[in-house]
Simulated assay, not measured.
Amino acid sequence: MDATTAVRLSLADADHDPLANRTDRALSVVKRGILTGRLRPGQQLIESEIAEMLGMSKTPVREALKTLVGSGLVSLSRYKGAVVRELDSDAAAAVYDLRVLLEPEAVRRTVTTGGDLGAASSALDRAVAAGEAGDEVGMSLANRDFHRSLYLGCGNPLLVATLDGLKDQTALVSVSGWRAAGGWRTEAGEHRAILDAALAGDGDRAAGAVREHITGFVARVLPRLGPTVDPSDQDGTAEPAAG
């Protein structure tokens, strides 16, 4: 996989937080690049290249990469240093298994307690528009917003935080997996079924639609992933490549 020079990173992609320090801004930019698929699984993340692109020293970039290692989006290779994590079939199955146990219940709670669904409807419209325009980045971000807006009102902050982390890791698969899963129209149709059930106030039906959506994606996509990565190449003891 090519190094980060194959993708231009910019502070314009950072979250608009005026109080964010350099480490937070570097973290925001690199994380967004991973979640949108601009930085692909297996892609090497070289501190000096990222720092030059963002106009900062290597220290905040190094700290940002360490944070991403802790969140499971970046792994440390003995030979390459920091790379975007490649989620093999075993790891992906574990992440999706936990998500399918938690997300349907979170959505059911949001619906049954009368949570606001306006953001979900807006996110679905944006995802469809992005799909029609061939905008994979926009579609990826809108789909994440759709799912999050449906479980955000579940009433349990710990459950929300857990699902946020799982969604980050599933992005390593879903960024490219929607093609194998039947394309963006298939995904949009399944999202529409979830939203229709939620708007009807039927929490059980919405939860069931979420469960079918996730398990269907897993059945179509996970068999296409590679076998388990050799742990001797990713032992977690390396340092991010300074470049």
Results as ranks from 00 to 15, higher is better:
155 G>Y: 07
138 G>R: 04
118 G>W: 00
169 Q>Y: 06
48 S>Q: 15
208 G>W: 00
13 D>R: 10
22 R>L: 15
107 V>K: 05
25 R>W: 07
199 L>E: 10
236 G>F: 12
136 E>V: 14
18 P>W: 07
25 R>D: 11
177 G>D: 11
70 G>F: 08
151 Y>S: 02
77 S>M: 08
115 G>I: 01
207 A>Y: 03
17 D>V: 15
168 D>S: 07
119 A>P: 08
94 A>Y: 10
118 G>V: 00
96 Y>I: 01
117 L>N: 04
175 V>N: 09
42 G>S: 05
102 L>V: 03
97 D>K: 13
155 G>T: 04
105 E>Y: 05
173 V>M: 08
59 T>S: 12
73 L>K: 06
134 G>W: 04
110 T>R: 09
157 P>A: 01
139 M>F: 06
94 A>S: 11
85 R>T: 06
51 A>H: 07
17 D>H: 11
201 G>T: 05
48 S>Y: 13
6 A>Y: 03
151 Y>M: 08
70 G>T: 13
155 G>R: 11
198 A>R: 00
176 S>V: 05
171 A>T: 06
213 H>T: 02
215 T>H: 09
195 L>Y: 00
60 P>I: 11
150 L>M: 08
157 P>I: 01
149 S>N: 05
149 S>I: 02
174 S>T: 14
149 S>Y: 07
